[in-house]
Amino acid sequence: MVKNALQAQLLKAGLVDNKKAKKLSKQAVHEQRTGQSNEAELKAKIAQDQQEKLARDQALDLEKKRLLQGKELKAAIVQMINQHKIKDTDGEMAYQFIDDNKVKKIYLNQQIYNALVAGSLIIAKETEGYAVLPKALAERINQKMEGFIIVNNSEKNEQTTDEDDPYAAYVIPDDLMW
């Protein structure tokens, strides 16, 4: 009847009677059962914490992958710019343009300057400076990622003039120096 050796010794010594021993054994069984239910709750909490941690880790992995893809795309665009830029552009003609709210100036030869003003060439931001590129490449770069093309005069040339404009007949030269 007595399951515990300690309980048997207490019964022999007369310190505990049978009724109290049964009560203690029932209480021990009850504690064991509730302890198991606490273990189940604990296991459920651990599983839930693991699921939350897994979800956070997956979100962080997606963010890292997205950043890495952005860096790879940026590197690919810089490589395209370096491969396709027109190399022999140095000349005496100064071409001024705005980049990050600052007026920048590059010196070009007359042929490159005329093509840039006409819109068949564009200026793109390079890692250390600026590069002159063909218009077709600029369209491909803008499709992939914006922010590299600084000057694209073909967009200005395609704009239609307002018919009610009294100064429509007067063309402002692009090479006007003040």
Rank of each mutant, 00 (worst) to 15 (best):
G14I: 07
D165L: 12
Q69D: 12
I106R: 05
E41R: 12
K26D: 08
D174H: 09
K87N: 05
T89M: 05
L137Q: 09
K156V: 15
S37T: 02
D99A: 10
S120Q: 06
I172P: 01
G147F: 14
Y130S: 04
I112P: 00
L54K: 01
I112D: 02
Q51A: 04
L62H: 01
L42I: 03
H30A: 12
A131M: 06
T127R: 12
D174E: 14
A13L: 14
L62M: 05
I150G: 04
L10C: 05
E72S: 02
I122F: 03
Q32D: 02
A44E: 04
Y130P: 01
I141L: 08
Q143F: 10
M145R: 13
E158Y: 08
Q32P: 00
I81R: 01
Q7G: 09
Q7P: 00
K23G: 00
L67D: 02
D162H: 15
L68C: 01
Q58S: 00
A94Y: 02
A55V: 11
N114F: 04
N4D: 09
G119Y: 11
D88Y: 04
R56S: 01
K45I: 06
Q48V: 00
E41S: 05
N142C: 13
P134Q: 08
A115C: 10
V103K: 12
M145K: 15
E72Q: 08
E158M: 14
V2M: 06
A136S: 11
V78I: 13
A44K: 06
A76S: 14
N142G: 12
I106W: 08
E139K: 15
K26M: 09
Q36S: 07
I77G: 03
G70C: 03
W178I: 11
Q69M: 12
T89S: 01
L60W: 01
A47E: 09
A13R: 03
Q143I: 08
A115Q: 15
S25L: 13
A118Q: 10
L133V: 13
E41P: 00
D90G: 02
D57C: 05
V16E: 02
Q9P: 00
